[in-house]
Design a protein around this nucleic acid. Structure first.
Lengths: 249, 249
DNA sequence: AAGATTTCTTGACCTAGCTCAAGTTTCTAG
DNA sequence: CTAGAAACTTGAGCTAGGTCAAGAAATCTT
């Protein structure tokens, strides 16, 4: 259960706040100065826990504030009229959720823990209060939400690619996000199911399985259940870009 | 050229500013109070013109500010490594562009006029200046960018549907956006090509043609070149939702 | 207004990846 | 530790929609 690749959240027994959190360079504080971080720390509720499968917030429920994942991963899902689930995205530690409720004050997505998670919560009413005294916060949130928009465009670009390219890109994307967060970029555990990966990428879970098998047979990766190892990152990347070079024009 | 369905931009000879613009309920001013709109009006450069095919900004170029379309329509495109174009979205009058450059200060998309357009420009440095004196602006922009995120989730949901459903949904989406903006919702001109529609929806342009033909043969719409008329909105909507009800589970 | 170019339409064929099915492995709860 | 459930794998067709092609219509240019 205790994975050597996962950095410890806190090494001392002193309680973690935004000031000494090791995710400060990824989370909301990124871009705030020391004093602002101190003010932010006072507003944030820490050490919220959810078990695997439990929701952090539900589609349709009122927006209560922003959520910053501290450990564990989650999925963001939306539903169509028939109740079919669409996996909008996966969230890793240091990443921020809640933008789907900000525009209308009602969440359009449900956030679900993929394993036991620990998260911080920045209540909506305190956001507003903080905003008037410290305009930087809405600016930071604006930046983050535009980051999300950029990521969405990347996903749209990906949706024009073959199933193989999508899977290769997915693996590299997770790897890079883990690397930035201080985890091992070449060996990790993906807590989401093949079904969830396929749903997110717009392909059948059987296809995901087949492609993992294909990549393994070509010595690009090693997969054992949910445990992944990237063997040939360069080739995996080539695999994923080569096709588009064959594209017309 | 002068379409009776298109509301006149200004009926008097007094120059249009944010205070008396008929798009104030859709554009940036939405959510600002009278005094704030007045301040905003001082920062905005008006009556910028682009001809069909000309760019408003380019992917990779530095962010210079937000753009609000006043008349005419535009497309937002992104490119993959091979230079293939992806139509990220279409913009109608009163809609705001530029979020794709806000996070990194470099545009990830190119904005191109689909016909002669007139737009307002809110320069980036003035945005910042305005933000510190009037925190509401970044809040407004945050809202708008989260609106965009919501729209992106809708597009993701759509990408799981059949080609027919995508086209039906596209027509209804444009119709609704035109309605909100005071244009006729049942009869309009779509200035984008079949190619651009197909690209945006993730289907071949031949498929777009075939489906327009199918819809016309079923008396749901009338299409003549770029001119559209929705004949049976209810049925078109049913067409688009029926399938998902057949979905599993 | 004629020619050139682009866009649109329609047909015929083809394939990536979906669906269905059945066996296997992994996880979960007592 | 064991039984049952859930997740995963692998195979075999099948089909939605892509690609290619060629003609028609619309649009642009001079």
């Amino acid at each position: 259960m205790s994975d050597p690749n996962i950095p410890k959240l806190s090494t001392t027994h002193q309680p973690v706040t935004c000031e000494n959190c090791n995710l400060d360079n990824l989370c909301i504080p990124k871009g705030l100065d020391r004093q602002e971080i101190g003010e932010l720390a006072l507003l944030v509720s820490r050490n919220n826990i959810r078990q695997k499968g439990e929701a952090i917030y539900h589609a349709g429920s009122p927006f209560r504030g922003m959520v910053a994942l501290r450990s564990g991963s989650a999925k963001l899902v939306s539903f169509d009229q028939a109740g079919n689930e669409l996996v909008v995205g996966f969230m890793l530690p240091g990443e921020i959720m809640g933008f789907d409720g900000l525009a209308t004050q009602l969440h359009t997505c449900t956030a679900i823990a993929l394993e036991t998670i620990n998260y911080c919560h920045l209540p909506a009413h305190k956001v507003e209060q903080f905003e008037s005294s410290m305009p930087s916060l809405s600016h930071i949130l604006l930046q983050r939400s535009c980051d999300e928009l950029d990521a969405q465009v990347q996903k749209m670009l990906l949706s024009r690619r073959s199933a193989e390219e999508r899977v290769a890109s997915f693996i590299l994307n997770v790897s890079e996000r883990l690397r930035v967060r201080g985890y091992s970029e070449l060996e990790f555990r993906l807590s989401m199911s093949r079904e969830e990966i396929g749903n997110h990428l717009g392909i059948a879970h059987e296809t995901v399985s087949r492609i993992f098998h294909l990549f393994q047979s070509r010595n690009l990766i090693e997969v054992k259940s949910k445990q992944f190892r990237i063997v040939d990152k360069k080739e995996l990347f080539n695999f994923y870009t080569t096709y588009s070079l064959n594209s017309p024009k």
